[in-house]
Design a binder for these strands. Sequence first.
DNA 1: GTGGTATTTGACTGCCAGTCATAATCTGAA
DNA 2: TTCAGATTATGACTGGCAGTCAAATACCAC
Lengths: 207, 207
Amino acid sequence: MSKKKLNKRQKQAAETKMKIYEAAKELFLEKDVDDVSVDSIVKKAGVSKGSFYVHYESKAALVYVLIKDYVGEIDMDYKTYLKSISQDRSTLDIITLLTEKIADILANKIGHDNMKWLYKSHFLSSISSEPTMSYNRELYKMFDEILSEGIRKGEIRSDIPSTILASHLILAIRGITFEWCIRYPDYNLREECIKHMDILLRGIGIQ
Amino acid sequence: MSKKKLNKRQKQAAETKMKIYEAAKELFLEKDVDDVSVDSIVKKAGVSKGSFYVHYESKAALVYVLIKDYVGEIDMDYKTYLKSISQDRSTLDIITLLTEKIADILANKIGHDNMKWLYKSHFLSSISSEPTMSYNRELYKMFDEILSEGIRKGEIRSDIPSTILASHLILAIRGITFEWCIRYPDYNLREECIKHMDILLRGIGIQ
DNA sequence: GTGGTATTTGACTGCCAGTCATAATCTGAA
DNA sequence: TTCAGATTATGACTGGCAGTCAAATACCAC
């Protein structure tokens, strides 16, 4: 973790690894991950191909790290936004607003191409889905907190545990995002999120 | 469409094409589509590689045809089942039953490996998602019919058109299936479909 | 210093989708 | 019947890419 106490060799190695990471990051922003070869990464990074495989087990392993870091960043964005919402809103309002924010970030910050690739990566055995799918992901915790508070306030049905409800809501957003990835550009992510949530939230509210 | 009126050459060509189709079908049942090379298909079919590309533009084009045919078959299964359900059930019951049937077929008839590959194929630019995703797909029509009948009977909220509701329900099933593809085997498709539908159907019913 | 280790290098392997020049076969018009 | 042209079939070959490996280099600890 600490940058200190590295001898020259270790510094050199860390530098090489970082150069690969940064070069890959830039290239992946330019084009689809599948269209970026390891050769092009090492060329951009100014290191050899053999070096690449010393620092990363495979191309997929590098992509995994990039995704993991990026998901972490995104979840911080969500958290920051959530804190900025005034607390005296209804639970359903908060969920709706957060959902809209998520749709915005997916569509505008991350973008369709990257999202599409991310979803595809879930189907590649070489890349673990853990960073995005883990129930320990910050996103699940956020929804869980909102929902358990909603149950406490009597705004949300209490016959299903908040963690389960959270997983259903996130699953739904994922379903809509999946649909968006495929139907793009004939599909408005934000709009469809709102419409679908309207139905789903009626199903989790107190009737 | 008709088998007649083919001269010797055309018969021969049709035979070759069919041999490729059948060989591919068998191989894809044995292993993941990505692990089946064109070379292995033509070897099994007993034709040359060049011949393959006379009949199919690409490996993806062949897979497309196989998927299209298979989706057609599956939709017929759904339809047959739907007809077998007694008509005097409530709309919500019918939808629940149909959803369970779909989950059964996906999990047991098609199976996890094939479903995973099918979902992955949506992210390959070489393979069109049209057979599964088209709103003209038989599945959408079936849900639409059930829902519009439900609206007519006053069991389903009437502020959203039945076609839109149908798309939301199918999207939800797709979302759960997606989750199942990734979380397998730690995820029970049938069970989760039922639980999610329970919430969603509360949201589309008359309150 | 020096022996051993971490790091780097790039040519090489193996795999696979797709191509192409060539050959074999059939058809239909003359 | 004939044969020129069209269809279909062949398989060696190309190009691109992920990953390997033996050899070279640079560094560290003793």
